[in-house]
Design a protein around this nucleic acid. Structure first.
Lengths: 193, 193
DNA sequence: AGTAAGTCGGACAGTACAGTCCGAGTTGAA
DNA sequence: TTCAACTCGGACTGTACTGTCCGACTTACT
């Protein structure tokens, strides 16, 4: 089963599903234990409506995870990760994905423990297939460190993007200063020597 | 009130308090929502015993936070952060604190939202007073980037240390390879140009 | 316009947890 | 050795949540 069967749904139901997933992503990014009631409130919907589309909290988490991965993958693809020099390409990709990457990091933290490492890895795939070649290209060229696995670089980029988000949320750095700071920090972190 | 009054307690009570705080630190680092029952189990104690020393869950969290900060501060001080070149000193300090720093990062995530930014900052103090001068020394000398606030550097170091811990926990990097990888990543991240 | 799909609002049972209490037993201090 | 401090085990209350159900109403399709 490559993808789930394309159910025929009414238009308002479709809209609500989108609202719910987005509301859940927002809510969970700021509070990993956000309740179904809180998510429903944010989505402008009644709690029972969520259960109309997602039989259980777990299944909603799954959908949110999938959506977050898809968003990162989409933004990554649009930034053309395979064009130009690796460093330049990484900067371009990060510029257009780092906030989403931060949300993804938060989601990941929630799903660690709930899902097996294998399962988590599997769901990563859409992002992995775009990021990994970029990192490898940089390693081959010698601009990114070769003494650590690709997964290390990915983890560091995620962590830095998330920390950057947290810094601006806490007001310790301004909106206008984060992006350059985050970019140079991430680039430096991967750079060899 | 600089410190709480030094209550006269029986020796076994004192031991239990230590066990409870340590058990809570472990438990909460791996699961931020660990229950009082789970913490009691790990501490080899009955749930009611925890309430004998900590009136509420919140107060236990406070104590755990304080302990984590103290542990980091202690390990930092022992590594003599003010001796030698900034880069060399940072490496030395990180080498002896990064695991504790990772625990601290996890605790911080729990306490964000529960406590105000001001309050959080206040509790940081013991660590800050040791780390900040080191970073500033590096900035003055020009080896650490000057275009970001000191707090940025601290956030990045914490994030990298925590991510490194997560990577070894997930088995994507071996115990023997983490430390050098983490050190060079952190050092690079702070380095100017 | 008619009908099926979907939403609302609220009630309900089940579960997991924080926090309280107490009586019986154990341990440390003088 | 004696007594107070402490722990244990378990029972109990209150609360917050997840998941289910249903009847009244609204919305989208044809």
């Amino acid at each position: 089963m490559p993808t789930s069967p394309p159910k025929r749904r009414r238009a308002d139901a479709e809209r609500n599903i989108v609202s719910i997933i987005n509301a859940a992503l927002e809510a969970l990014a700021s509070d990993p234990d956000a309740s179904m009631a809180e998510i429903a409130r944010r989505a402008g919907v009644v709690r029972a409506t969520i259960y109309m589309h997602f039989p259980t909290r777990e299944s909603l988490l799954d959908a949110v995870m999938e959506s977050a991965v898809a968003q990162v993958a989409e933004a990554t693809a649009q930034a053309e990760p395979s064009r130009g020099e690796p460093e330049e390409a990484l900067e371009r990709v990060l510029r257009s994905t780092w906030q989403k990457l931060s949300d993804f990091h938060a989601l990941l933290a929630i799903n660690t423990g709930r899902l097996s490492a294998k399962e988590l890895h599997r769901r990563h795939q859409p992002v992995m297939t775009l990021f990994v070649p970029l990192i490898e290209r940089g390693q081959k060229k010698g601009v990114f460190r070769r003494d650590v696995p690709v997964s290390w670089h990915l983890a560091m980029v995620r962590a830095i993007a998330h920390a950057a988000s947290a810094e601006v949320r806490s007001g310790r750095i301004s909106e206008s200063h984060v992006e350059p700071a985050m970019l140079s920090t991430a680039l430096n972190a991967l750079r060899s020597q």
